[in-house]
Amino acid sequence: MQDHSGRIAVDGLSKRFGTVEAVRDLGFTVEPGLVTGFLGPNGSGKTTTLRMILGLVVPTSGTALVEGVPFETLGSPGRVLGAVLEAQGFHPSRTARRHLLVCAAAIGVPDRRVDEVLGLVGLAVDADRGVGGYSLGMKQRLALATALLGDPRILVLDEPGNGLDPAGIAWLRDFLRGFARSGRSVLVSSHQLAEIGQSADRVVVIHRGACVYQGELAGLGGGRRGRVLVRCAEPVTLAQALVAKGLMEVDTLPDGRLAVGGADAVLVGDTALAAGVAVYGLVEEQVDLEQLFLQLTGGVAG
């Protein structure tokens, strides 16, 4: 039975295209009230996973349930879930308004909803033009308008930032956050952490079709804290002083600086002063999530 919870539950999901294992034994949930980021490099299986959730691709094994049931058994799918997918096309000679009127009829919402969503995504002025003449960003906005027509409880977006201008991306980020804050669910994929980082409450990171991390974004660092980098006159003396203070994570960098883990700039500066070591430079280094993401997904080693 459909539970109207706005949850998505993916369990043991796998998909094989011929010899390509696009998705391997993937499991995660999308909870209402949160923005769940779905991260992975190109070809890692994001689109395939989202399409399996939406009943567009038949899984080789495993299940993907929307509100407790397979998507294709939902009574009126457009009112439960709206989706913006890659390669979601439009008929070039159909106008945006006509396109939305078709979808409004299918979802079963009144026609005035079309003007509402057109206004919401900023397409009201261009609504009566053929979509063939639209820019990439305008098509993306129209896809979002389509997803919102049925006022769904869940939004699924596959790289929605593609083609959007910076203002559009900022708007989308705020919109998704607001959507989630109203108690609904958002699952949004991206191949760049930066695009999601600021709005996702949770992330699921996949690499070659398998999950490599899921949980809070902050936890992506695996408990790693920031470091303090010090350039000083006598590194050895300072290192001894720091160790004497109980700071065990002290490394020498190739450029001669000391890297001190688990400390802040004040503590390191005070220690140097007490030890009588002249300090020429002091930098607090933040955990670079982007670097971690790249490490996690086998990109450039950090």
Partner: peptide
């Protein structure tokens, strides 16, 4: 077949069962 040609089939299936 036009639905596949213009890739509109995705939206069509998402708003109504196959």
């Amino acid at each position: 077949s036009g639905e596949f040609r213009h890739r509109t089939i995705t939206t069509t299936y998402l708003t109504g069962g196959r």
